[in-house]
């Protein structure tokens, strides 16, 4: 059972070997040795390598079209300006509106008390 678990761990490492992701030289040598001596590990390695290569070769990379890019950026810009005007409107209302006047009156009253 323990051997089987260990074997499965090595089988998983064949993925890392196919991806050039084993940094430890000793471990890499150990996995490479197993690939040349153990048919089970060799088959696992072949599967990892052949699937990786098939996917890499056959799946074309699709770039985001310039229209979509433009559309996204325009939406962000419009979101930007909408939010800016909301905040500016709020500040304007605070400066000129009833709430703003009441707030300023209260603030002046507090200032007078402390002066």
């Amino acid at each position: 059972m323990k051997d089987r678990k260990k074997r499965e761990e090595y089988a998983t490492l064949t993925a890392a070997l196919a991806d050039g992701e084993i940094q430890d030289d000793a471990l890499r040598a150990e996995v490479e040795l197993l690939i040349s001596t153990d048919p089970y590990i060799r088959a696992e390695y072949i599967v990892q390598k052949s699937v990786k290569s098939a996917v890499k070769q056959k799946c074309t990379y699709h770039s985001c079209g310039s229209e979509l890019k433009k559309c996204i950026l325009e939406e962000i810009k419009s979101f930007c300006s909408k939010n800016r005007s909301d905040i500016e409107n709020l500040l304007y209302r605070c400066r000129t509106g009833v709430v703003g006047r009441l707030f300023r009156r209260k603030l002046n009253a507090i200032k007078r008390v402390f002066n």
């Binding site: 089988a11 998983t12 490492l13 064949t14 993925a15 890392a16 991806d19 992701e21 696992e44 599967v47 990892q48 052949s50 699937v51 990786k52 098939a54 996917v55």
Partner: peptide
């Protein structure tokens, strides 16, 4: 990531 990739390629192999 390593174990998922290992398993995913096995599944993909069977499908292909």
């Amino acid at each position: 990531v390593r174990s998922r990739l290992h398993r995913a390629r096995k599944m993909l192999y069977a499908k292909l």
